[in-house]
Simulated assay, not measured.
Amino acid sequence: MPSFEYGKVNDSGDASKLISILSQCFMMAPSDGEVYMQSVGIENFRVIRQNKEIAGGLAILSFDQNYGGEFVPMTGIAAVGIAPEYRGSGAALALMQSAVKEIHVEGAPLTALFPAVQRLYRAAGYEQAGSFCNWEITTASIQMGKPQLPLRLITTEKDILRSLNQKQARLHNGNLNRNEFIWADIGRSKDAQQYAYLIGSADNPQGYIIFTQHRGDDNDYINVRDWVLLTPAAIQSFWAFLGGHRSQIDTVRYRSALVDALTFMLPEQTAKLKSSTRWMLRIVDVKKALEKRGYPQNIQASLHIEVQDDLLESNNSKFILSVANGRADVAPGGKGDLKLDIRAFAPLYTSLFSPSHLQMTGQLEATENAITTATQIFAGAGAWMADFF
């Protein structure tokens, strides 16, 4: 097996080489690669070397991600790229396994990414865990009358937007407690003027919408860059406001969950899912991940879990998960009534798939009682994200 060395970007020469590799991998101009490295921070990049030559690299981003109403520390992996001449050498797997080990040492219990391919990341212990979806609706079909709440154009109220976004993130599994990188990305708009509207009164804001307007080849459209809607009146006002653009705008594009509750308030089923993909998650620290997550308040139960993890020995064990009053305690040992590998643990943890679904597809072995208990403990809507990194 070839020998690889994992580490940080040491100097400007390393940075230049990595920018060149990533620019080729992602078909972007080197100047865009430089901007991306500056926005992420050079200290947050890692490289993999063979014979002292950089074969590829990735970016590491720190987030918190909501599960069960609690934010769990999560390290995002982005911009994974291997130079073409090193592909097939094992460099990509060495890079990912080394990153997972570093994340474990640093203490984050979760790591997530958006995969171009799944096989590489599955080999490092990642699995499908949540949805990333794009929706579209014609403005003429919205027909929601006038907004129930006032909408006010804003330019400087960043703290209000962040506070509202955090409130919404706690309601949806998989949503991020955003870092500066994500907020900066939302604030950038290269090709169109961006508009932000607060929904509700100044002393009682109930949401917001941030969007751009575009002329397309076939139709003109609004691209919703970000939204928060915390009340029924806010959802109605969101749709009514967008429908009010119908004299000039044909369609609206936005991101939401795979099962989008916003569409439930529409008079007809006119919103269409245009694309859907799944991001992947890896449990880096089983005990910490389970204890930091939130759970249904009315559940009091214990589940004996046996996890197989070929990369991180501390996860490769039996655990007793005890849940009460929305919180969990995890102790070593137990009977291992529910057995699964670290990959299958991810969609169970995020509620993407139920224990029965995972059992049906051969991803776990469990007693009937363990399946029932796990279903109660990990009950919830499937995880999703509107943010991309």
Score class of each variant (00 low, 15 high):
T251C: 11
Y197P: 07
L321A: 04
E313W: 03
E136M: 12
D185F: 03
G174H: 10
Q38Y: 06
G88T: 03
K190H: 12
E368H: 13
D260G: 09
V9Q: 00
L321H: 05
I60A: 05
R188N: 12
V323H: 04
F211L: 12
R225N: 09
S23V: 01
P332M: 01
F389P: 01
I48H: 08
V307M: 06
G7V: 10
P147Q: 03
P115R: 03
T111H: 07
T111W: 14
T155G: 15
E306R: 14
S163V: 14
P147N: 03
Q269N: 05
E127G: 07
Q128R: 15
P296C: 02
P147C: 05
R152D: 03
E291S: 09
T367Y: 07
R162N: 06
A233V: 00
M144L: 10
V9I: 13
P73N: 02
G107V: 06
A15N: 04
L58S: 10
A202H: 02
K287G: 02
Q308N: 11
A374R: 09
I54S: 03
M385G: 13
D309L: 01
H104E: 07
L258W: 15
G90Y: 08
M37V: 10
R278G: 02
R282H: 05
T138P: 10
G200I: 05
R343V: 00
I199W: 08
D203A: 03
F71Q: 08
A233N: 08
R327Q: 06
F345Q: 04
D309F: 00
V252D: 00
A99E: 00
